[in-house]
């Protein structure tokens, strides 16, 4: 392995987990997330000589990951449209404060979102990126990020099914 390949291997070690975590959450499928991350890193390797600002590497890599997720999503959308994928990647860490009902409702609602909406939700709520950074990663204007986040959040909140009153959720009997 040459010097450049060793350096790139270090990048895979350091950023691979974060990229996979993002891809998994967008796609909700471990194998497809792995494919997306692999494709993104190989694209990054191939196009790295053209990167003009090293400080932009991480944003650029995340964009490649998100684009690879879009591609994976569209590749499998046709046959998976009516198939509900069960978690096969467990035992995943689970937050016991998220109820089974919440988990199920969110899973179902999330799967109705487009990959573009999913990406914004994941980058914001999971990766913790500010909206401006999400705009950079997603390659869309800031206003589009805001509208996508607003729409997706409303869908997911609605999926929680119930009334939130002053921060208190009341489930129907």
């Amino acid at each position: 392995m040459g010097g450049d390949e060793r350096a790139f291997a270090d990048l895979v070690d350091l950023d691979g987990d974060r990229c996979y975590a993002i891809a998994y959450r967008i796609l909700r499928d471990g194998e497809r997330a792995q494919d997306a991350v692999q494709q993104a890193f190989l694209l990054a390797w191939r196009e790295l000589p053209r990167l003009r600002d090293p400080e932009r590497f991480e944003v650029w890599l995340h964009r490649l990951v998100v684009n690879a997720c879009y591609e994976e999503f569209r590749r499998y959308r046709r046959w998976s449209a009516n198939v509900r994928t069960l978690p096969v990647d467990g035992p995943a860490a689970r937050d016991e404060t998220v109820s089974i009902d919440d988990r199920d409702a969110l899973e179902r609602a999330f799967r109705t979102l487009s990959p573009e909406h999913r990406a914004v939700v994941v980058l914001h709520h999971h990766a913790g990126l500010p909206l401006a950074s999400i705009a950079e990663v997603a390659g869309v204007p800031l206003g589009t990020v805001k509208s996508r986040l607003h729409y997706a959040t409303r869908i997911l909140r609605d999926a929680l099914a119930t009334d939130w009153v002053e921060g208190r959720k009341v489930r129907p009997a």
Binding site: D17, Y20, A21, Y24, R25, G30, P87, D89, A92, A93, R94, D95, T97, V98, D102, R103, L106, V121, V122, H125, H126
Partner: peptide
């Protein structure tokens, strides 16, 4: 919290 669940 739900998004944090899953492999990382």
């Amino acid at each position: 919290a739900w998004l944090d669940e899953g492999p990382t």
